[in-house]
Design a protein around this nucleic acid. Sequence first.
RNA 1: GGCCCCGUAGCUCAAUGGCAGAGCGCCGGGCUUUUAACCCGGGCGUUUUGGGUUCGAGUCCCAACGGGGCCA
Length: 492
Amino acid sequence: MTQRGDELLQSRQAKLAALRERGVDPYPPRFRRSHTAKSAVARFEKAEREGKTARATVAGRIMRMRGMGGASFIDVEDSTGAIQLYLQADALGAGYELLADLDLGDFVGARGELMRTRRGEISVQARRFTLLAKALRPPPDDYYGLRDTEQRYRRRYLDLIVNRDVHDVMRKRSAVIVALRRFFDARGFLEVETPTLVPVPAGAMAEPFATEHHALRRTLYLRIATELYLKRLIVGGMDKVYEIGRVFRNEGIDRDHNPEFTLLESYEAYADYRAVMRMVERLVPYVAQRAIGATTIERDGARIDLRPPWPRLDLREAVRTHSGIDIDDFPDATALAARMREAGVHAAYEESRGRLIDKLVGQFVEPRLIQPTFLVDYPAEMSPLAKLRADDPRYAERFEAFAGGMEIANSFTELNDPVQQRARMEEQEELRRRYQGEELDRVDDDYILALEHGMPPTGGLGIGVDRLVMLLTGQRSIRDVALFPQVRSIDE
RNA sequence: GGCCCCGUAGCUCAAUGGCAGAGCGCCGGGCUUUUAACCCGGGCGUUUUGGGUUCGAGUCCCAACGGGGCCA
């Protein structure tokens, strides 16, 4: 804290002491308000139309004060909006003295008649005026807001105090999650909760966070996906399950990556990835309608129409069309890397074939997928948990859904052959040894044991909830759709 | 991981290598229908941190820390 900050603090602490001196409780335990700012305004407007008078008790945080000597105006805000308090020395008597020890950021309550001032502002003409909570530090500048991104993320409460549009984004985020639940619940899916702390960090190609369990004397990991536990439930006969949960990936932080994010996964027995496509192209517009009241969105000047059907685009064809490279001509990673470098792509020779193809998709295909699109049939080595195509085992029955140039969903016909599953997981381990540092999946023996008991044909789905919210709210950074994104800690 | 940009008062921002400033906020005074209220007075600062160059550094150089962007 700077010296100046201390002076501000001291000034407010002095006021706090003065209030206590006069017998004012600066933190009273409760206050009954009759109206929110918004409902008080509505009540007045109704009374005004009917030629009646109305009273209200409101409460909120002081955001602006205009003192005029014997009269003062205070704008207070609550979660619904703002309302002006009109305070007069004559009407309040001793209560008016409170004003001298108030600051921006304090919470106050007022009761009185609702009125309209000469300038037309609907106000509470206070008969009673109470301090509800003294703030020792000031809110950010009300007019300019809080623009410093670091402070906005690090001290989100300050951001929320002055940047009201953040409330709107977060309300929409909540509405997205409510809508997702409603969609799956209505289709007979059961919402379940699976472990966050797991012995094997499998189910996705990602680096895990590790932690120590003292009593068990073993390393546990924060889950990187919910997939393998949900499929254990399919083995157990829960035919339709879903989970909305936080997963953790020990990776870099950028505009669309936060180390923890919200993932929705669903699994449906007797469905395949084509059935899941049909579900997804209905799910997304459903959620959009409920969360933002529309099934089209504007982004980068483009109008994105979320309504079905969404085009299916073959991955190999899409890569060939946009990059000129036919991945089938390069079954070997080194040769593919050479061809990519020829095409001007930054490709190291020590990268796995799956990673190289991912790079091709990311560079040549993804940015073009502005309208919702299913990219279909991924190479087998990129999809160790997916069932291979019967007609071409180089590819898996897998799709990813894109919109606004962003991946929003990943799905496959689940691999339910335990013998092949072990081999495919072992292939991942082998690739990890060969391409050190790459994020690849792991063998989960306990999961394979479950598969050995038999899993019906199943269609699975994963949706990045944060990215879906980004898409629907027009936000460019995952940090703007998460209340408390990861920030570096500052040593005090 | 590499490259680029940024960090000045509580907040938003200025300052050619030459006395660190403004608006809001804050402090003191005035004002009984204001609303970015207004009027009078007050600048409240380790210019992120640590080195270096220079007669002189907010400004130039190096490093660290924090933030943002582009690439991997």
